[in-house]
Structures are given as C-alpha cells and as structure tokens.
Simulated assay, not measured.
Amino acid sequence: MDLVPTPVGKAGITWYPAHGPTRAVALLGHGMATGVEAADLQALAADLPRHGISVALVTQPYRMSRTRSGSDEASLDAVWQALWPIAADLGVPVISGGRSAGSQVACRTAEQLGAHAVLALAYPLLGPGSPEELLATGRPTLVLQGTRDPFGRPDQFPALPPEIELIEIPNANHTFDTRGSVPRSTTMDRITRATSQWIEQQLTRA
C-alpha cells in the first residue's frame, strides 16, 4: 500500500496493475461500514486487470487512523481531489467509483475532476445519498444495486437519463450478500462481468 499525504491525513492506495498495457485506471473508494476488503471491491481488483484496467483501491485517512474524524463529505471529497492526479498522470482514462459512500464521492467530484465515467456500487439512494447527487455526475455512470438493498432498491430509483445505467443484482443487500439464495461467486461474477463490459463500452466510445 502506498501512503499519500492529503489535506486531512494520509490515505492509502493499493494498486492492482493491468496485465499488459494499461488502457484505463479504476480509482475506487470504500464505504463507511467496510474498507477496501469489501467483497465487490476485491472481486473487481482481481478481475479488471485481466482486461487491461489498473485498479487503485483507496483507503480514506479516517479509516487509516481508525477514527471518525475526516469522514464528513467535505473531507472525503478533499482526499479524492488530492489523490486524483496520481491516477490522471498515467495518461489513460480514469473511471471514478466506489461502493456506498465511496460512490457518493465519485458522483460529487466526477465533473470537476474530469472523470471518464463513474462506477457506483450499492449507491445509498435513500440516505445519505440522494437522486440529485447521482443525477449530477455529468458523466456516463453505471449503478450496480442489490434488489434487497435497504438503502435503495432498483425499483426505488427515479427515471434515469440514458447516460446512467442501472443493473440489478438479484437477491443482494447493501453488501451484495444474498444470504445463500445465490452463490457468492455467482453474485461477484455478475458484478465483475457487468463492470468490465461497461468499461469496455466507455473506452470504445472514447
């Protein structure tokens, strides 16, 4: 893990380099309840490099220090802005994203930072996120949402513009746990396959 100074403390970046030439970078953040060890983030970190996508999993400073200080929206966004040049300086498209609170950070900062696209895993639509925050990304956006997510089921989302695609993950809750109704490996495969195909589309269009 690389330690990087930010305005609110040191953040961590764990890199999973692309296999072969790097076609893009996926800069992904964690949620409030879990860190980068979350199953969906780890599945993407294992899969996307096979498609030429380097993955950078970001651990926010508040989690590095194991405190709640620096977990407010302004601090989270400031960290993302501080880390962004590290990914952007690689000279390839940057997909900004994350799970839950991490997806909110990506949505709020995408237009300002010039993200190529936004990946939102388990977006907390019913709070602390909002439809307005999601709709304001200004970039092509993929939302992967469990059909049992208490923070917003797919059928609770508003009508979405063409640039925002919503994919349902059957029987999954906010952490994409299906309580055994669907094998964990099947759920993770759905997530990685949908994400890699969508990123491929964004890179092709570019």
Rank of each mutant, 00 (worst) to 15 (best):
L142A: 11
T137Y: 05
E37C: 07
G102F: 05
A56V: 02
G91A: 14
A43V: 12
T187F: 04
G20S: 06
L166P: 12
G70S: 08
L166F: 05
F157W: 10
F176L: 05
P140K: 02
G138P: 03
S69H: 11
H30G: 00
A194Y: 08
R148Y: 06
I164M: 12
L126F: 12
L90M: 15
N171I: 09
S75Y: 06
V8I: 14
G70V: 09
R205T: 14
E73N: 12
Q145A: 07
F176Q: 04
Q201G: 12
G20T: 14
V25M: 08
H174F: 12
Q202I: 05
E37V: 11
E168Y: 01
P170H: 06
V8Y: 14
T175G: 15
T192M: 12
S65I: 03
I86G: 02
G31Y: 02
D72E: 02
P131K: 08
Q156T: 06
G127L: 07
R148P: 00
T147R: 02
P131V: 03
R148S: 10
L3F: 13
P183E: 11
A87P: 05
T109W: 01
R184E: 15
L90F: 06
R99P: 01
R108D: 03
I199R: 02
V55Y: 00
W84A: 09
S196Y: 04
E168Q: 14
R23G: 05
Q60C: 04
L83P: 04
A74V: 03
G98Y: 06
I95P: 05
Q42V: 14
V79I: 10
G138H: 14
R190T: 01
T67R: 09
R153E: 10
A120N: 06
E133C: 05
M188K: 05
T14E: 15
M1G: 15
L121H: 03
D2H: 15
D189Y: 08
T175L: 15
T22G: 10
S71N: 11
L144Y: 01
E168F: 08
D155E: 14
M64V: 13
S65C: 01
H19Q: 15
G91Y: 11
F157I: 10
W198S: 11
G91N: 14
T22S: 12
P7D: 15
T175Y: 13
T6E: 09
A43I: 08
D177N: 15
C107Q: 13
F176T: 10
L135T: 09
G98C: 12
